[in-house]
């Protein structure tokens, strides 16, 4: 039986939520090919691989690729390891959720395998026929692949999370000699926040240039905290330094699909819409009735945030208090 490999990223020893969504897509790829699904966990030891295997997620097995060069993520070493495991297992397809790490490393592996890569898959149409959005979400295209192996990344927001199942067996797999090629990761400056990550939040409150300053974002944060929401932003807001860059939603930022997206002082440029128009319910608050954001909003309020956010926060707080 042929194999579809899916690379699971782990966070504090457990499968990252984003990867769970990707597993669902990979299971569909495997089903389309009549192949079995194997999960690949890379690292300096096999602790995380064993954790993932304990949850199973419907996979036939979990492969542990262990090497000291895989302790810190670098695209160079991970790319080498992924290509090596793909060769050794004869996998017909290799996937991962489209995170910044897989977008960094998978194309390297693809080049070494001389294999095609399909980015940001949103639907599996058939064996080797994958659908993805292009041009800031203005078109959906189907890519046909005859080659084996091929690689793919998954847009997490388009697939439900895989659920734990019976435990899967763990096998160790050789990763060759992954080489960071002199690259050194000096550190990561993380944006600390008690709020849920953008890509996992059920509700997102997003601000744009219309907020005027980073200081004014506290009004959005107050509302977000009442709603248990994440805070997002447009490029204009992040470029101006109002909030950290990793809060940016859009073609070049995070792609999100929460139950509720509230856009405040955001005009709705095509690149912003590309990242949020999959949201179930969109609310727009903007003083300009012509703002394109109103074309995708389920509920639009033509007003200044100064005149509306305080009342909105008050009403939401009242509802929360009534519920408690």
């Amino acid at each position: 039986m042929s194999t579809v490999l899916f690379i699971v990223e782990t966070h504090q020893g457990k499968a990252a939520t984003a990867s769970l969504h990707g597993i669902t897509c990979a299971a569909r790829v495997a089903a389309a090919h009549g192949a079995e699904l194997a999960l690949l966990v890379l690292g300096a030891d096999d602790t995380a691989a064993r954790q993932v295997a304990a949850e199973g997620y419907g996979a036939a097995k979990v492969l542990a690729g262990v090497h000291e060069a895989l302790g810190t993520f670098t695209a160079e070493a991970y790319g080498d390891a992924i290509a090596e495991v793909a060769r050794a297992t004869g996998a017909i397809a290799v996937g991962a959720t489209a995170t910044s790490s897989s977008r960094d490393a998978l194309p390297r592996a693809a080049a070494m395998l001389r294999a095609p890569l399909v980015s940001e898959v949103v639907a599996v149409q058939d064996a080797g026929l994958l659908r993805r959005p292009v041009a800031a979400g203005r078109a959906l295209v189907d890519t046909k692949i005859e080659a084996a192996p091929y690689l793919f990344t998954v847009r997490a927001s388009e697939f439900p999370a895989a659920e734990a199942s019976a435990a899967a067996p763990v096998e160790t797999v050789a990763v060759g000699d992954p080489d960071p090629r002199g690259a050194q990761v000096l550190g990561i400056e993380r944006t600390e926040s008690a709020r849920p990550p953008l890509t996992e939040a059920k509700v997102i409150v997003s601000g744009g240039r219309g907020m005027g300053s980073g200081e004014n974002f506290k009004h959005l944060e107050a509302l977000a905290d009442l709603l248990g929401a994440a805070v997002g932003a447009s490029r204009a807001a992040t470029d101006a330094g109002m909030v950290p860059a990793d809060l940016q939603v859009g073609q070049t930022g995070k792609v999100v699909a929460p139950d509720l997206y509230i856009a405040v002082g955001i005009s709705g440029a095509i690149q912003h819409l590309a990242g949020m128009k999959g949201s179930k319910v969109i609310v727009a608050i903007n003083k300009d009735p012509e703002a394109p954001i109103f074309q995708v909003a389920d509920y639009g309020l033509v007003a200044k945030w100064e005149d509306t956010l305080p009342r909105l926060t008050e009403l939401v707080r009242a509802r929360r208090t009534a519920e408690a």
Partner: peptide, 29 residues
């Protein structure tokens, strides 16, 4: 090795509505 064999526009979002006040917005949400 990865030709595009089909392209189509994404399905449009159903039209939304303009609300007149925050109270109406919260009520409808």
């Amino acid at each position: 090795t990865s030709p595009i064999v089909h392209a189509e526009p994404p399905p449009p979002r159903p039209p939304g509505q303009i609300v007149e006040s925050v109270d109406e917005l919260v009520e409808k949400l």
